[in-house]
């Protein structure tokens, strides 16, 4: 099953590129504010961060493995982004996705989801079987701490990601579903989650402000 997942992922990403496709460039050019430069810069910045955190987690000898996995994640990220935009264009009959494509959290969440799929495909422990005593679990939600991403925001991209990539294996869909459940049941309710502000705003809109109650309660 593990080999099948890896082979399927390699097959999906064989024809994918490390840079935005011509189709994606057209979407970027259609934006009120062209997001191309910020997207490329973010991918580059997060690569440095991911490599560093990966090496810290499993040892400097494995840094190159981390780099390879990140690069596969980037290919999947651009591929899924293109698929999502095509679906949205069809659904909404618009071509200008300036607000979405200039949203830092959207891109960080989407890239994190893509890298999470790659990490889950290759297994949770990079140093499996080499006898080291400090094996680190790199499975979800490790990626959230690496990208400094809130679970609530990561959750937003999961279903659309699954819809946009029909080649995902059943195991990967199940993995993403487990991530969703974990966020819903626990991670989205941690201190600092954007969820509490949204609940407060929702109550204020309904005229139900309660100054005496702490938001966490």
């Amino acid at each position: 099953a593990a080999m099948n997942n890896i082979q399927q992922l390699i097959m999906i990403l064989n024809s994918a590129t490390d840079k935005p496709s011509d189709t994606l460039i057209v979407y970027f050019n259609n934006c009120t504010v062209n997001p191309k430069d910020s997207i490329l810069k973010r991918v580059e910045n997060l690569e440095h961060i991911f490599k560093k955190k990966f090496a810290e987690a499993v040892g400097p000898a494995w840094a190159e493995i981390g780099s390879q996995r990140y690069k596969l994640g980037v290919r999947l990220y651009y591929r899924v982004m293109e698929s999502m935009l095509k679906s949205e264009e069809e659904r909404l009959s618009v071509q200008n996705f300036s607000k979405l494509l200039n949203d830092n959290i959207f891109h960080t969440s989407l890239l994190a989801c893509a890298v999470e799929v790659v990490m889950a495909t290759y297994g949770r422990n990079a140093s499996q079987g080499n006898g080291t005593s400090a094996e680190t679990d790199l499975s979800f939600p490790w990626i959230l701490s690496v990208f400094d991403l809130k679970a609530f925001d990561f959750y937003k991209v999961i279903e659309s990601f699954i819809k946009a990539e029909p080649s995902l294996t059943r195991e990967m869909i199940k993995h993403l579903e487990r991530c969703e459940h974990r966020i819903m049941e626990s991670l989205a309710w941690q201190s600092g989650s954007p969820l509490f502000d949204l609940i407060r705003q929702s109550k204020e809109r309904e005229g139900q402000t309660d100054q005496s109650e702490p938001s966490s309660t």
Binding site: M84, S87, E88, R91, L92, F97, K99, L100, D103, I105, F106, K156, V157, E159, S160, I162, K163, P166, R170, I173, K174, E177
Partner: peptide, 21 residues
């Protein structure tokens, strides 16, 4: 995707989730 529960409704997509509608 047979076992996966799709929660988004007919008129919902990624644009709405990131307040871009």
């Amino acid at each position: 995707t047979q076992d996966y529960h799709f929660g988004l409704e007919e008129g919902e997509g990624i644009s709405e989730l990131f307040d871009c509608d």
